[in-house]
Computed example of a mutant assay.
Amino acid sequence: MGRFSKMHGLGNDFVVIDARVDAVEMTNARARAIADRHAGIGCDQLILIGNAPDADVSMQIFNADGSEVEACGNATRCVPLFVGRDVTIRTKAGLLDAKAVDGGASVDMGAPRFDWDAIPLAYPMDTLTMGASWEDLPAPAAVNVGNPHVIFFVDDLDGVNFDHLGPLIEHDPLFPARVNVNFAQVVGDDHIRLVVWERGAGLTRACGTGACATAVAAIRRKLVAGPVTVSLPGGDLVIDWTPGGTIRMTGPATHVFDGEADWDRF
């Protein structure tokens, strides 16, 4: 039997498995089975915590569809709560620093990247105001914050057809690694409303990397000044970034319950 914790960050929920002592073989099919909300445990992402030679822990992230991804901001905030102390975390996106704060965590998410081939895009393009769009959406921005994001700033967030546009854009050939799709509305000098269609997971209650990417894009376009409050369906995150620096994300993390499961059954 293996132990796990169910956790969430603003309703973006995770099955967190500790593989530091007892290794857990995680395949795409097994991650997908565990994440299944009807036949498995159920989660948006499965998080595997392991050992790292250059950090306190390592973190592997699997989406609900079984695909492994580079970064997850909401999951990163859960790690110091899961481990019980401030930690450095080795991820595919790089080395992250997570510190516990009252009710959650503050995470240095590293520096954003803007080059077209770092997003990645299929061909060269300005990533601040892209020469591409879909249907009646305005020209978006693109930012890589450890994983790829495209951001649309709209006048009326409530009028967007997320279920139609999200998968259409996620799977567009312009994005060879697929993409997280952010629909944002600026509602104040330091306040953004955001809904995210997450690559491999669909609409989520919250997306920490999406909040980071959106705040960065809005600051680059001079639509807001940091620190920025990003309001997602699940709640608020505070994102602070100065051009040339790293991104600091602060927000809640919640431990729901602990459990045991036989991973060989999945």
Rank of each mutant, 00 (worst) to 15 (best):
M59W: 13
D36F: 11
V24R: 13
T250H: 10
I41F: 12
N180L: 12
P167N: 00
G2L: 12
N63L: 08
L10C: 11
A98C: 02
G66R: 04
M130F: 13
C72S: 14
I151V: 15
F152H: 03
G202A: 02
R199G: 02
P138F: 12
R113F: 09
D115E: 15
Y123G: 00
I17T: 07
T246N: 15
I17K: 00
D22T: 06
E198D: 05
D264W: 11
T127K: 07
G159P: 00
C43Q: 01
K222R: 09
F114D: 00
F82L: 06
R30G: 03
P124G: 06
G226F: 12
F153N: 01
D189P: 04
V224P: 12
F257A: 04
W134F: 15
A213E: 07
G188N: 08
T27H: 08
N51C: 12
V16T: 03
R220I: 05
Y123D: 05
G202D: 05
N147K: 02
L157P: 06
N182P: 10
V160G: 12
A75M: 04
L121K: 07
W134P: 00
G159Y: 11
L137N: 11
D172P: 08
V150I: 15
A98W: 09
T76H: 05
T209V: 07
L203E: 14
A39E: 08
V179H: 05
G73V: 00
L165K: 04
R265A: 13
Y123L: 01
V145Q: 01
L137Y: 13
M109V: 03
D264S: 15
